[in-house]
Amino acid sequence: MNRSEPSPEPQPSRLFFSPRGAGKGSVRVSLAVLASITLLCLLGPLVSPHPYDRVYRDYVLVGPSLSPHPSAAEIDQAVDEIARRMHAQIEIQSLDGEALQATLAGDKPIDARALRAFERSDIFSAPRIIGREDEGRRLRIEASLKPMFFLFGTDANGRDLLTRILIAGRVSLSVGLLASLVALLIGVGYGAIAGYAGGGADALMMRLVEIIYALPFIFFVIVLVMVFGRHFALIFVAIGAVEWLDMARIVRGQTLSIKRKDYVAAAEALGATPAAILRRHVVPNAAGPIIAYLALLIPRVILLESFVSFLGLGVQEPLTSWGVLIADGARNIQSAVHLLIFPAIFLGATLGALQSLGNSWRDSFDARSN
């Protein structure tokens, strides 16, 4: 008597966000990179000693360094500039890491109010007179130094590059998230309605999508700038107006497949409205490819915003984005290459992590579907 083969035990269903194989490690790395960059951009400017729009006239195009400023050369240059403004001669007596002692000599008695030139510099604090000679023609002063750190250096206007990169990250990430959210809402709704309606309504709605596809994006942005002027909100409008098209096509294709399922037919037989069917059955069952494409859409939107800002049509000074910083770095690449390298690293790491995350989720969905 032949024994029947034992039936295989039911396997637990895999969640969509549980990648198989080596993709699990790449998801963890991508999430760690994104979390680190996001926390830096959110919290970094709050603890930075340099406001993102503060101009340091004595520190223009300073290179990246772990050493504190000012250096001896920067002090000498600042002293020469102050002496020129005061029409006096300054002889440095002693210099240490905390204070400068010098003697000021002039043809006429030196007015103490002229010492405010030290206060207006970014290197010295308010000086203190420690001695007078020759009826006030010679003053011995002591001025404390202002130690500063510029880990990533400064830009052509003397602004701290690290703080500006973190502020730019806030702008670029917010544009990527909000514009992607707009594309998600419009694309999912439009594609689901078109796919479920079918027939002439579907054909008409998709012809409209193809017409919008034919419009050049840069031309659309230029028209918006000419009509409404340069404004930060225009970036969301311009990007959100075109990036929902691919989402609509994806959701439409999924809807055409899902609406033939038995559970949709059962819901229709029970008298469920089309809106209820789309909300309860179609969109939830199409969530896999929607989320996978959304993870790929965010880096695309960030790159698009950077490209628009690189052309000078995006955010305006003193606000900045990674695209604006990269454009500034490209203009100063010969004299200050750090202006290009550091924002490009942040942008590249963010785009790479998002792209890797989207690819892993897409592969996981494909494996689950098969």
Rank of each mutant, 00 (worst) to 15 (best):
L347M: 11
K146Y: 00
H87R: 14
K259M: 08
M247Q: 06
K261E: 14
V188F: 00
L245N: 02
A266M: 06
G229T: 00
R28T: 11
K146S: 03
F217H: 12
K146G: 01
R85H: 08
E243Y: 13
R331Y: 07
F342V: 00
D111C: 07
I165K: 02
S360Q: 07
V242D: 01
H281C: 09
H50G: 02
G63W: 05
N359G: 11
A143I: 01
T350E: 03
V47Y: 15
V251D: 01
R132P: 04
T154L: 05
R164S: 00
V324Q: 11
K146T: 07
M226C: 10
L245S: 02
G187M: 01
H50W: 02
S369M: 11
D202Q: 06
F17W: 14
I277M: 09
P8I: 02
P12W: 05
I123G: 10
N157L: 12
R132M: 11
F219G: 07
H338W: 13
L15G: 15
V221N: 05
R368W: 04
T103F: 08
G195Q: 00
V33H: 07
R300M: 10
V301Y: 01
L319T: 12
D246M: 13
I250K: 00
G131V: 04
E243W: 13
A287Y: 09
V227T: 14
E98T: 12
I333L: 14
A102Y: 06
A126R: 13
Q355D: 13
R280F: 11
D80F: 10
E268F: 02
G200W: 15
A276L: 13
R138Y: 09
Q254A: 05
A102K: 09
A330S: 12
E317V: 10
I186W: 01
G312C: 09
H87L: 12
G153V: 02
P45D: 01
G348D: 06
G189H: 01
M206E: 02
M1L: 12
E305S: 05
L311Q: 09
H281T: 08
W244M: 03
A266E: 04
S172R: 01
A269W: 11
S94W: 06
F118R: 03
I258C: 04
R368S: 11
G136P: 04
E74S: 07
P70E: 04
A117R: 11
A183E: 03
T255H: 02
A35H: 00
I92S: 07
A327Q: 13
V175S: 08
A336N: 05
M148L: 15
R85S: 14
V308D: 07
R57A: 15
P299F: 02
